[in-house]
């Protein structure tokens, strides 16, 4: 069952096209990872989905209803966590949570207490005294203490410490197990890898890659570090080998996932002494999409590999 669907969703601000024909589909019980660099259009997409911005063209529906016209009804079953939570400095965290939960309509009191405990938040403090992480917690607690069917999370863990990030991931998993759907926009690729069933990569207002993680892995590379008894000059010429570096007998390089087999055959013929491999990560895929444009090629050839 499709919970959220956008068809050729486009948004222009004056002459600037922020989003260009975005197609997203999120099904029931699915966690959809929405990744992309800053300014790619993630937040704009989400604000369109929330009926805060009006689409220039294209269609977006949630629960089969139009996100602009039926915003209020949709929001009764939807929970949202923004990436940058601005709160009212003179209200306490507890007051804000109550307000948010009440505005949605479906309150779950015991859940509120439990989440405040799990996220270790002091609800009696004024919001002005909260750090970024604590403001983020207020939004997350209000989102998960209401019984929503769709969670829209826009970089929800920015500012959270690693422990709290784990608690957040548990919350998402629990929601998924309860059959809820999640749209998770994130920078933290390990988080997306751990949580998401499907991933969409957005760049400069266009969705450049979508699919399940398994599908996308075909596009990824495996990092290898080997030491062989005899040198392997042929490796440099082989198809699918990238960023080859030599130090003595040690070699480190990357292989396209589909070219792994012939490469391994050549290596083992020269006698493998030592082999380390790092699994293909979303990060590699992500970085590779940057490299193509030159914009982020420096980051691509940087320390990560």
């Amino acid at each position: 069952m499709t919970i959220l669907r956008t068809t050729n969703l486009t948004k222009s601000f004056g002459s600037f096209t922020a989003l260009n024909g975005i197609n997203i589909e999120v099904n029931k019980g699915e966690v959809y990872g929405f990744i992309g660099p800053n300014g790619a259009g993630k937040s704009t997409t989400i604000r369109l989905l929330l009926g805060i911005l009006k689409a220039t063209s294209g269609e977006a529906t949630i629960f089969g209803r139009d996100v602009w016209k039926d915003a209020v009804d949709i929001h009764k079953r939807l929970a949202y966590v923004p990436g940058d939570v601005n709160l009212w400095p003179n209200l306490t965290g507890g007051e804000v949570i109550d307000l948010f939960v009440k505005l949605r309509g479906t309150a779950n009191k015991s859940r509120r207490e439990e989440l405040i405990e799990r996220f270790d938040l002091d609800p009696s403090k004024k919001c002005r005294t909260y750090s970024k992480g604590n403001r983020q917690k207020v939004a997350i607690i209000s989102a998960f203490s209401s019984d929503a069917d769709l969670y829209i999370l826009d970089e929800p863990t920015s500012g959270l410490d690693p422990l709290m990030e784990l608690v957040f991931q548990e919350c998402v998993m629990e929601a998924k197990q309860a059959g809820k759907s999640v749209l998770l926009s994130s920078h933290i690729l390990s988080e997306v890898e751990r949580l998401c069933d499907k991933v969409g990569i957005i760049r400069e207002g266009r969705l450049i890659e979508t699919g399940t993680l398994a599908e996308l892995r075909h596009l990824t590379r495996t990092s290898l570090r080997v030491e062989t008894r005899l040198p392997v000059p042929a490796l440099r010429e082989m198809k699918g080998v990238h960023d080859l570096e030599e130090d003595g007998l040690g070699l480190s390089f990357q292989v396209d996932s589909e070219e792994l087999e012939p490469v391994m055959a050549v290596l083992s013929a020269q006698g493998i002494v030592k082999l380390e491999s790092a699994p293909p990560t979303l990060e590699d895929l992500f970085m590779r999409h940057y490299e193509g444009t030159g914009q982020a090629s420096q980051a691509g050839s940087g320390g990560v590999r």
Partner: peptide, 10 residues
């Protein structure tokens, strides 16, 4: 960005 909290709810 604080009216957003209201509009993103019902």
């Amino acid at each position: 960005n604080r009216t957003e909290h209201l509009f993103s709810r019902a």
